[in-house]
Amino acid sequence: MTTLEATEAIVDLSTEMDRPGLSLVPVPHEERLDLEPGEDLIRRGDVDAWGRSERVRGLSRALYSPIYKYWFRVEWEGLENVPTDGGALLVSNHAGAIPSDAPAIMHGIETELHRAVYGMAEYLFRSLPVVGTLWSRVGGVPAHPDNAYRLLHDDKQLVLVFPEGSKGTGKQFRDRYRLRRFGRGGFVEIAMRSGVPVIPIAVVGAEESMPTLFKSRSVAAMLNIPYFPITANMLAFGPAGILGYFPSKFKIRVLPPVYFDVPANQERYPRALVMDESERIREQIQEALYEMLRARRNVWLG
């Protein structure tokens, strides 16, 4: 987009601004919400505009490190496919009743590449006391499209999404490693609008770390949560199984970046194109998963 076009887009928007229900049009802009000179003298903490605190994140990395190294023994492949600068949308499969993949991916990229990763998740977290605050301090952000756009386009950060959402984590063990529907392809649209590539990621091991054997719809409805699982961990460890993972071997493969041949900052993108790209990325991850499973000799040893 040329400067003139960008200016026109802004002028357009300002006249359209008062129309109610107008769909969200991100406006390109150069200015960022950076700290002003002298601001660092005022601030008492390091919580950024997204609620993430590098200090808290560092502490949680230190606590999680032994689990990462000795429990799950996470192994990476293709880490060079994650860009070292600029925004990128990391897209992964999602598994485990309480997903164990998100912390593993975030920890790995942050320690190996020294880049912050913001994890997009359910709004629900934000409504919970203590949990919601902690979740936000370690890099969790509610999965609002505009939040993702700002992080990717304005702040040029790495953003991790699980397009399967709770359909991925809520699936039963018999459906393991079979990807669910990738939502409505919203993640592709966000990447296109932000002008960033999608980095597909395939995770093997999370499914076996906390397999769901049964689900109770009535309890879930009662507690107003997406699903209520009875996991193998609960049967094995009792109440401790709610957070006790099995030590399955984690293997994470990063696939080559997917770039989209469309201009950024459009109001909408052809639905057919979005769905095609979404399906293509889903297939890539599915293929990678099958390939990795073919090579895996043992769930616990890899």
């Binding site: 928007l13 107008l22 969200l24 049009v25 509610p142 609002h144 505009d146 939040n147």
Partner: peptide, 13 residues
Amino acid sequence: NYQDPYFFREPME
């Protein structure tokens, strides 16, 4: 509200 975007733009409701 917990479903809000982190930064409201003017056309948002």
